[in-house]
Write a protein that binds this DNA or RNA. Structure first.
Lengths: 343, 343
DNA sequence: CGGAGCTGCTGAACCGGTTTTGCCCTCGAA
DNA sequence: TTCGAGGGCAAAACCGGTTCAGCAGCTCCG
């Protein structure tokens, strides 16, 4: 059961290795009849290229890398990651066997993430990577630049350090949410955001405050969390128990919004009669809880797909460019209503 | 910015490539002082082995493969997969750079999954794979046997076709659930299970029926679904709307149980006063919904970790063996109560 | 008729490791 | 003293591809 190599094919066809290589890769150097004969023999022998040999000789790994930097506990809960991966895989599958593999790593901490890129690149395990959750002064940008490791960014388009990115207009979505809540009569709106160091958190915060100012809202707040359900619950509890509690809460993910739903129940606040809630990222979770969560929907899988396409294009020698995907849209459901409505 | 190779090290140290290889791999063939010198130089030059070159010469890819066969939509929602991946990664990270990478593939359909194993093995992209969701007469078992592709199974321990497996005693857990519901006075219990073709579905069904018989329960039913929230809701709706509706529902995942909670609300059935619900797999979802779901908790991440350890051991020449992990435990919460209790 | 240019292929180098072979030297035992 | 064993290393083969230089034969053109 030995491996079939191009040597075997060459021998069977009575030609040289080089000719076989040309034939199999569809490049000039062999006549059409010879090519057909070689392809036929390769097919018959069940030949498949050794990824190692190919990687060694042409210097490309044939794989892309994705590092998830998140405590394992949170990973399981947030649907975001899996949807992203599904999107990434969808284009990797179609792209032929070119860079067809996705190398995945789960780490906890920025340092571990940086170390992972270093090793992957040093070992030439990947041809490029997708960076997610862009931070302020993100050290990864410097690192990939320094290493020469091809990379694309999920996020931006600011503070990307020149890296090509895939982004959507979060600010516009936040604006839409605030206007929507305003139109429902809400005047005290609070935002339960993700970690302050994420760029997209800043983008949303800025848009939130800008819109609030424009509408003349004075009583708005943003509190930061780590995206976990506990943190979301804690923030909601604190906000709702404060002196002049907000009448609407806007969350930076769906998990925290769902947790806040529980908190509201616990505090005896009717949703949406007394408090309105808006989630970010519309997953099944939003539809499962009662009442179903009003949410901002982003095409997450498309983000992943676009990122891969951009990266592959880059690897093929394409020009770096930024890709804007469809804007997030607000999906009103059962957790938003007129401010102070009676049941 | 050229790559540092062992040739560079050899040249710097004034020795041959072979000596450097011996030194770096900690095998006899060089003297202790030489070894130290070589290691020091390698360190200084920042050398890292090319995974491709190593793979080519010693025939091992240095990566393990995992294929997720599930429609992308479902993937995002089920926390199971991410938890599993987190578990897998946890041991891959500690194991040094031996087989340190995880190759991931998302497919939809058995055929695509089989094709993926074929290609991975033909291209020698992976050293072994982890198979999940064992089916009756699973074609993957024959395939890996035929290919000689090392594999371990998540599930079993029956119908594994001789493949080493990691399993936990699902039957005992189901038994515990049924006894628990029985002790609460429930006599009409229905089970909303996963697809019939999965081996673990069969295992649970058998245990369910055995326990029901033992307790003298005559009105039990098992209906099959595809694990999706819609299917779970549909099944719950149908069961609860039937002539003599069950007073307790046992689900094969958490997603469907959460969906059923919504259905119960919709039908005006109080939980747990009128209907009790038990989920399988205790994720954050169970704690987020109101009331929080009673659930069977399995150490999913540990499953993944155990599977990797088993596979790595196998690759290192270890004997195939089966690993039983901690038994699932029942975590009673707010969706189970005495049968017919008044709110 | 001669040289330039193209086609279609061969042979060999190359990628960066591991492993085998073989040489030289030293040391211990007969 | 001699012989064998074994340690320490160099040199080369090898893994399975890609790619480059070169060469034979043919065509085309002045």
């Amino acid at each position: 059961m030995k491996r079939v190599t191009i040597d075997d094919i060459a021998q069977a066809a009575g030609v040289s290795k080089g000719a076989v290589s040309y034939a199999l890769n569809g490049r000039p150097g062999v006549s059409e009849p010879t090519r057909r004969r070689i392809l036929e023999i390769a097919e018959r022998l069940g030949w498949a290229p050794s990824s190692a040999a190919r990687a060694l000789s042409d210097g490309r790994a044939g794989a892309l890398g994705l590092v998830l930097n998140r405590p394992p506990r949170v990973l399981g809960v947030e649907p975001y990651f899996m949807q992203l991966i599904a999107g990434i895989e969808s284009v990797l599958a179609t792209e032929g066997s070119e860079s067809g593999a996705l190398l995945l790593k789960v780490v906890d901490g920025v340092e571990a993430e940086l170390a992972c890129y270093r090793r992957w690149w040093a070992e030439r395990r990947v041809d490029g990577v997708i960076l997610m959750n862009l931070r302020m002064d993100d050290p990864r940008i410097d690192l990939v630049g320094e290493l020469g490791l091809p990379a694309v960014l999920l996020g931006g388009p600011e503070r990307t350090g020149g890296l090509p990115c895939v982004w959507s207009d979060d600010g516009a979505a936040i604006e839409e949410v605030v206007e929507y809540l305003f139109s429902l009569g809400h005047r005290r709106i609070a935002r339960v955001a993700g970690p302050e160091e994420f760029v997209h958190t800043g983008t949303r915060t800025a848009a939130f405050e800008r819109t609030a100012r424009r509408l003349g809202l004075r009583d708005t707040r943003t509190v930061h969390t780590d995206y976990s359900d506990e943190a979301g619950a804690r923030a909601a509890r604190r906000l709702l128990a404060s002196g002049a509690p907000p009448t609407a809460l806007v969350f930076d993910n769906d998990l925290m919004a769902a947790a806040a739903l529980g908190v509201a129940a616990e505090l005896g606040r009717a949703v949406p009669a007394q408090v309105s809630l808006v989630a970010w990222d519309d997953s099944a979770l939003c539809r499962l809880v009662r009442p179903p969560l009003t949410a901002v929907r982003r095409p997450i899988a498309e983000h992943g797909a676009a990122a891969v396409r951009l990266l592959l294009d880059l690897l093929a020698g394409g020009e770096p460019r930024d890709v804007e995907t469809a804007a997030p849209i607000l999906v009103p459901r059962g957790t938003t209503g007129r401010c102070g409505a009676v049941g």
